[in-house]
Design a binder for these strands. Structure first.
Lengths: 348, 348
DNA sequence: TTGTACGCGTTATCAC
DNA sequence: GTGATAACGCGTACAA
């Protein structure tokens, strides 16, 4: 409950003026040797931390932070990001942070680019985005740098040297986790990786997961494991069940399936209605997946936690703008393993 | 980037002085009808949010927040709390929050009480504690209330009606999670719950977990499951292996074990060296558990996340003291499922 | 090279 | 009832 040391205190202790202390602290020069020594002596004895509240008091402006991610009508994976925005607004609105939410069509690179450029033209202080399209994201990044808009990305990385304040998960490791889970669920040795219904833009995503998955089984020494991969794209989407049935008929030794996207429910539905022998591990707490998780048709889900990603990203930006905190170059969030009993707490 | 509305703005718009606006906003009375109407009219038109930074500027004091939890020499479960304290210090020291860390002997109720009372006598602004001892905790709580010290608890609850700002997990649900995990790992029907090496004070903890575990199997319809329970206390601790061997010899159908404490490694060690057929689910990311997790002798760990608990507790207190945010009466944190592939991100 | 005065938004006090 | 003013801690502009 003691008092905090302020510049004024230091000035009094050193027998100089506030201005002089300020010049010493900020190394602006124009200080006599004798004054410098006096101030430094005091600074050594006490521990001075500038008050960030007072610092930011002068900023009577509203910082505009924009967030850009896909529409959730197309993929409910993104829905939780909305509540992240709401929470951040509650926390930081009074401090002068205004969040603007923008969405784009996850099937249209040009929609992403248009939205991003329209945001940039309004000159926000910072932009947090989930960039599905690599090439377009590069351009957006360039435009932001030009206009001195701070840029952060979440869920999808746009450069490996992390120059864009990435918040997300280690996708390779995430594939390993899926492998370990299926390994503990099954005893047979034939696993299937299923890529469902995603566009080219997510290729890196799925590839990383696949690599991690395979790596796990390669490392297992007593390895009698076999890993196969199939991709199902939109064109075949009219009849998933027939497609899957056909595949499993000729590969009846498979009993573990790793679905690399949030469309896990498609395989779960097939398994529940037709096949009934698969152990399934997939991604994300979307409604349909949770249904099958509760019914026991999906064994585990891996939570990519889009809400936490967005929340962290916005937090980092707000704290930086308000209090000058450094933005971490890369934050790898934990990868949550979800089963029918612990999903609830992760939903909110 | 627009300007924020301040009291001064409102005063100008309403044609009154700042003081009058202040009296209206804080309902201090002593305002004429005409002035009241003018100010209220402006307030309806614009959206005014007081600036919490300016509010707290006047507080040129250091708030003292104490945290009290068991020594980690006795149980490394508590070690991560230290880094929670460090992170909070980094975040809030400059705002005028000082954290004081205190520890007690987890085997000694009187040590807990002594430490707590010694803390209280220094009159901190708030106390966050992990109270292992129910009776003593009641007394501590009473003493805090008398001295107007804000009290919060983490990891262990001291009242069910949540009058003490509890941060922790749903232990019943945590038992259900363990059950589901063992259910997916084994096919036989005999499960064993092992309570190891804990004192009476943790009885509630372990009972809740046991209840949840049993409930899960009761609910399973096609239930050919059997659940047994054993407790191993300190006296028998000299020879865990013999003790366990004896039990399993006469219950050889058991192949799933749920250990309700962080001493999970004891059963894992026995299994690795002597028995080799158990699937094991237990608690907490302590070093020995992680070793066995990596070796495959423990299948899953449930993370009670003491660091996050402590971090949340301290955050809540700091934000309350600095900016007047409300302290949640109860925060139930997610219950993390950990395997050999995802423990790393949860450690830091 | 140094000291002083002012502004930021809020609140409390004091004089009218 | 009301309005003017000081104070909080920091940065900065300006005068000495």
């Amino acid at each position: 409950m003691m008092k905090k040391y302020t510049i004024k205190d230091i000035a009094e202790l050193a027998g100089v003026s506030k201005g002089t202390v300020d010049r010493v602290l900020h190394k602006r020069g124009k200080v006599s040797d004798s004054a410098l020594k006096k101030v430094n002596k005091v600074l050594e004895e006490i521990e001075y931390k500038p008050n960030p509240i007072a610092k930011s008091l002068k900023n009577n402006k509203v910082y505009k932070v924009c967030i850009l991610f896909p529409q959730s009508t197309q993929d409910s994976f993104w829905t939780p990001c909305i509540s992240a925005v709401e929470e951040i607004e509650n926390n930081y609105q009074a401090f002068g942070i205004a969040i603007e939410q923008h969405r784009y069509d996850s099937n249209s690179p040009s929609s992403f680019l248009d939205q991003a450029n329209s945001i940039i033209s309004t000159k926000p202080n910072a932009l947090l985005m989930a960039p599905l399209f690599y090439k377009e994201a590069q351009e957006v990044k360039k435009n932001c740098l030009e206009k001195e808009i701070i840029i952060s990305t979440f869920n999808n990385m746009i450069d490996k040297n992390s120059l864009s304040n990435y918040i997300g998960q280690d996708l390779f490791q995430s594939g390993r986790i899926a492998a370990k889970l299926l390994d503990s669920l099954t005893n047979s040795g034939h696993m299937l990786i299923v890529h469902i219904d995603e566009q080219v833009q997510n290729a890196t995503h799925m590839q990383e997961k696949e690599k991690g998955f395979k790596k796990y089984f390669e490392e297992k020494k007593e390895s009698h494991y076999k890993v196969s991969t199939i991709s199902i794209n939109k064109e075949q989407a009219t009849n998933y069940a027939a497609h899957l049935q056909q595949y499993f008929n000729s590969n009846s030794d498979i009993n573990g399936v790793f679905v690399t996207t949030s469309k896990t429910y498609i395989v779960a539905k097939f398994n529940k209605e037709n096949y009934k022998k698969l152990k399934i591990v997939g991604y994300d707490l979307v409604e349909k997946n949770i249904d099958y998780l509760q019914q026991g048709s999906i064994d585990f889900l891996i939570n990519q936690n889009p809400k936490k990603q967005a929340f962290q990203g916005l937090s980092n930006l707000a704290e930086h703008l308000l209090f000058g905190k450094e933005i971490p170059k890369a934050m790898l969030l934990p990868i949550d393993i979800i089963n029918s009993e612990n999903y609830k707490e992760y939903l909110e």
